[in-house]
Amino acid sequence: MNCAVLQFPGSNCDQDAVKAVAGTLSLKADLVWHETADLNAYDLIIVPGGFSYGDYLRAGAIARFSKAMQATVAAAERGAYVLGICNGFQILTEAGLLPGALRRNDHRQFRCDMVELEVVNGATDFTRAYEKARVTIPIAHGEGNYYVDDEMLKRLEENQQIVFRYASEQSPNGSVANIAGVINERGNVLGMMPHPERAVSERLGSTDGISLFRSILTSWRDGHAS
């Protein structure tokens, strides 16, 4: 499986993602600059966290127009896996790869903490390796308040597209229905605000991100088995 991690001006979690792929899957992930227009060689594209283009206008609004994101949209259409983390999730919604929008946290504060998540759908290509219903993953965001209208929320629930929810009754950001991560209808694009790449070592406080990366590799291998 060939992996790419996009780099935008303002990305700050790209190296974390590269190291997570190496540490959990023993695979090398290429850092791909935002002006790259061809991602046909990659089976997994990670859109990392940070503040792409300084989050001017709003988070992810400028990054969606980059050559690399246009190539990411094309890659998703051909079936490649796309994982958007934090700012990457924001970019995926702006690019139309995922429904909804990410707004300012309802308390208007940047929140950096370890949070407990409920694995709502453990049968996706991103979660099939999880053996427990609750996991601990860190967050670090000021605009993680996920919003969809009632009609779209019903659609997400009916299609089982809600993958992660904040387990606490009070979400850390005010997200609709405590949503922390969703997939597209096809099931090959996941966006989530928590950082699984920062939960791959006991030194980091949690290893619950490992299963997400292993799920992707297992799913890819199953899809390419002869």
Results as ranks from 00 to 15, higher is better:
94 E>T: 08
49 G>K: 01
67 K>R: 14
59 A>H: 12
46 I>P: 10
80 A>I: 03
80 A>W: 06
58 R>L: 00
49 G>V: 00
91 I>P: 04
53 Y>K: 05
83 L>D: 07
47 V>K: 11
70 Q>I: 06
48 P>K: 11
55 D>Y: 08
75 A>P: 09
85 I>L: 12
48 P>H: 09
73 V>A: 11
62 I>P: 14
58 R>G: 02
48 P>R: 11
67 K>T: 04
72 T>V: 00
65 F>E: 09
76 A>L: 02
88 G>N: 09
95 A>Q: 11
81 Y>I: 04
45 I>C: 13
78 R>V: 02
90 Q>V: 07
95 A>R: 09
75 A>D: 11
68 A>S: 15
57 L>T: 15
93 T>K: 14
89 F>G: 04
80 A>P: 04
70 Q>C: 05
53 Y>A: 03
67 K>M: 04
63 A>Y: 15
77 E>W: 01
47 V>I: 13
47 V>M: 00
97 L>Y: 06
56 Y>G: 12
82 V>H: 08
60 G>N: 13
76 A>I: 03
59 A>D: 10
58 R>D: 08
50 G>T: 10
80 A>T: 06
82 V>W: 10
49 G>D: 05
89 F>A: 06
84 G>P: 01
51 F>Y: 11
89 F>T: 06
73 V>E: 06
78 R>L: 03
56 Y>A: 15
84 G>H: 06
87 N>L: 04
74 A>N: 01
56 Y>E: 14
94 E>K: 12
58 R>M: 03
90 Q>M: 05
82 V>P: 10
69 M>N: 10
45 I>A: 10
91 I>H: 03
93 T>A: 13
48 P>F: 09
75 A>K: 11
71 A>T: 06
47 V>A: 06
90 Q>K: 09
46 I>V: 08
93 T>Y: 13
82 V>T: 08
46 I>N: 11
60 G>V: 07
46 I>D: 09
71 A>S: 05
67 K>Y: 13
70 Q>M: 07
75 A>S: 15
53 Y>I: 01
74 A>I: 00
82 V>I: 15
57 L>A: 14
90 Q>D: 08
79 G>R: 08
90 Q>F: 05
69 M>E: 08
76 A>V: 01
62 I>T: 12
52 S>M: 03
92 L>V: 02
63 A>N: 14
93 T>C: 15
95 A>F: 05
71 A>H: 00
75 A>R: 12
65 F>L: 13
79 G>E: 07
83 L>V: 09
51 F>P: 00
94 E>R: 12
65 F>S: 12
45 I>L: 15
88 G>Y: 08
67 K>A: 15
96 G>H: 11
88 G>D: 05
48 P>N: 08
49 G>F: 03
68 A>N: 12
67 K>C: 05
91 I>R: 10
79 G>W: 07
60 G>F: 14
80 A>C: 09
74 A>L: 03
91 I>K: 11
70 Q>Y: 02
55 D>G: 02
96 G>R: 10
68 A>R: 07
91 I>T: 14
92 L>T: 05
90 Q>P: 02
95 A>S: 15
56 Y>T: 14
77 E>N: 12
53 Y>R: 03
77 E>I: 02
45 I>N: 14
52 S>R: 05
93 T>R: 14
48 P>L: 01
64 R>N: 09
92 L>P: 08
50 G>Y: 00
63 A>D: 13
97 L>D: 07
91 I>C: 11
61 A>G: 12
67 K>F: 03
75 A>W: 11
45 I>W: 13
68 A>G: 10
92 L>E: 08
48 P>E: 04
94 E>F: 11
